[in-house]
């Protein structure tokens, strides 16, 4: 009975989507907002990467909320998984090669992650991509030596301060009489490392926040007790 109704529901949705597909005209839409941003972004925001200009400038509010979603998911994940019981079995340590490799990888990944974050306004990449690399930098040692614990206090302090500084930079603009999240400081020369005003700072906050959030989620999952 339930299968039948699900199949009917699926059929209805399928028909709807097929109808949309048939009726759609591809490649005719005019990207009016996109074109306007493409012609104004270099002057208004000063980032050579226009996607970054949209992510942190025009739609910075979305990015703030996205960080909050990750934060909320990590908080809720911690609430769901709870504390690990001290008697629980641990995974066996990884072999020597993986451990040595992890030690070598750690500084490399941190540097690459920070590089990607700090060049986000110039080249592809930025806080999210760099943040993922930072998270893996901190997670790989834990995979190599499951006995070691990540300091949850340090992680939660970093995530709290990074998120708060994003909002604080936004609020600073408000104290200056402008709208929330208005980019601050000099836009500088297009394409230079120190350009685009407060955008690199914002991306640094995003990168640290994403990195600590994801590292927290990963360790929560891996610290939960093994079944077999």
């Amino acid at each position: 009975m339930q299968r039948l109704s699900s199949a009917l529901f699926l059929l209805g949705l399928g028909l709807l989507i097929a109808a949309i597909f048939r009726g759609m005209e591809f490649g005719t839409a005019a990207p009016i907002v996109g074109q306007a941003i493409n012609s104004a972004a270099a002057e208004q925001v000063g980032a050579a990467n226009f996607v970054t200009a949209v992510v942190l400038g025009y739609r910075g509010f979305d990015t703030l909320l996205e960080l909050t979603i990750l934060f909320t998911a990590a908080t809720a994940g911690g609430l769901v998984l709870g504390k690990r019981s001290p008697t629980a079995k641990r995974d066996p340590d990884a072999g020597f090669i993986l451990q040595a490799g992890a030690d070598l990888l750690f500084p490399l990944l941190v540097i690459v992650g920070l590089y990607i974050i700090l060049h986000g306004h110039l080249t592809p990449g930025g806080g999210f991509q760099g943040g993922v690399i930072l998270a893996s930098a901190f997670f790989i040692p834990i995979l190599a030596r499951p006995g070691t614990r990540m300091s949850h206090a340090a992680v939660s302090t970093i995530e709290g301060l990074a998120g708060a500084s994003f909002i604080f930079i936004g609020l600073l603009a408000m104290f200056g009489g402008e709208a929330f999240l208005t980019p601050l400081m000099d836009r500088g020369e297009l394409g230079a490392l120190l350009s685009a005003g407060s955008l690199p700072l914002l991306y640094l906050a995003v990168g640290l926040k994403v990195g600590s959030e994801l590292a927290g989620l990963l360790t929560h999952l891996s610290e939960s007790e093994a079944v077999d």
Binding site: N49, V51, T52, P124, G125, G126, F128, Q129, V132, I133, A135, S136, L214
Partner: peptide, 14 residues
């Protein structure tokens, strides 16, 4: 390219 990097790092990797 930005989305491609994100999809590779987050979708495929993480």
């Amino acid at each position: 390219p930005d989305v491609a990097m994100t999809e590779a790092a987050i979708g495929a990797g993480l």
